[in-house]
């Protein structure tokens, strides 16, 4: 077992227990232990960075400090959390002056950022710690009839200089992990472009127009489902189809799944274990194709 400090963030426990449940059930089957730490907070994502970058960096660093104290590397499910934390981790490790500034702020909370731990997205843990071979061998269900439109969300890849996750123009890691489960990952127009999720709450109409394009492009490419990593993308594309229906009178009904859910299903975990009733778009047809 490899242990990681689990960083859950805000949105997953608040809105998407299906994401948490599938991760908590699937990852240990692959030898990954998730450790819950006390006192973690919000990761300080773009909405907070918009208010004050320095405060946001300090909050991210504070959370990394908790993992440093527990002597564990950190694992995130949410892509947004990954971006905030990994970006802060790299920036502070690279820039001594910034680190000193942030540590001065952290001292008020009795913390010091040392920079001796990694922040990893669970896809990195799957490729680096588990490996594609073991993953392939652990699959018990047949997903071969599934055409998947993968959508990593922006913050898994960008800003690439700081996140160093994958090639930002030609990413392959996520698609390989989907294909490792037996499904087929397909190309669609503007695959790497944003879903607009972060504009929800400020400019809902703009956010929806962007989301609609994603839904149109994936449908046009003949996808059976969209697979996401970020709770914001999920919300934007899943709930978003309800909103598109009322705003544009268009019905797509393309199921949206988190990768952890697809992983759970592929490993043979019973759908009812995965809290799938939180989905707005029904998964019945999709589930029937997984045998």
């Amino acid at each position: 077992m490899t242990s990681y400090a689990l960083f859950l963030g805000c949105t997953i426990p608040a809105r998407q227990p299906h994401y948490e449940a599938s991760a908590r059930k699937a990852l240990p089957q692959l030898g990954i232990e998730l450790v819950d730490l006390d006192n973690m907070t919000c990761c300080a994502p773009p909405p907070l960075q918009s208010i004050d970058l320095e405060t946001s960096l300090s909050i991210a660093a504070y959370n990394i400090c908790l993992a440093e104290e527990a002597d564990l590397n950190m694992i995130t499910l949410c892509t947004g959390c990954f971006e905030s934390l990994a970006m802060a981790n790299t920036m502070l490790k690279q820039n001594e002056k910034l680190k000193a500034r942030v540590n001065q702020i952290l001292s008020s909370a009795g913390k010091e950022f040392k920079g001796n731990k990694e922040v990893k997205h669970y896809l990195q843990v799957l490729t680096q710690d588990v490996g594609l071979d073991r993953l392939k061998k652990s699959v018990t269900k047949d997903l071969s009839s599934l055409k998947v439109a993968s959508f990593s969300g922006c913050h898994l890849l960008r800003p690439s200089a700081l996140l160093k996750f994958d090639d930002p123009e030609r990413p392959h890691v996520f698609d390989e992990l989907i294909e490792a489960l037996g499904a087929k990952s397909i190309w669609y127009r503007n695959k790497l472009k944003c879903c607009g999720g972060l504009l929800r709450g400020y400019a809902d109409d703009v956010a929806l127009a962007i989301a609609r394009e994603k839904i149109v492009n994936t449908t046009k490419a003949g996808a059976d489902c969209i697979v996401t990593l970020c709770p914001f993308c999920f919300l934007t594309l899943d709930l978003g189809q309800m909103l598109i229906k009322s705003a544009f009178h268009e019905e797509y009904n393309i199921p949206v799944l988190h990768y952890a859910e697809l992983l759970g299903l592929a490993l043979g975990i019973e759908p009812k274990e995965l809290a799938l009733d939180f989905h707005k778009i029904r998964l019945d047809k999709l589930l029937s194709e997984i045998r």
Binding site: H18, D38, M40, C42, T55, I105, L106, G110, K111
Partner: peptide
């Protein structure tokens, strides 16, 4: 769903940072 109880957030620390 068999999820463990949520850990409490470090509100005090956040307040100090803010």
């Amino acid at each position: 769903y068999g999820l463990p109880p949520l850990k409490s957030a470090g509100v005090e620390a956040i307040k100090k940072i803010l």
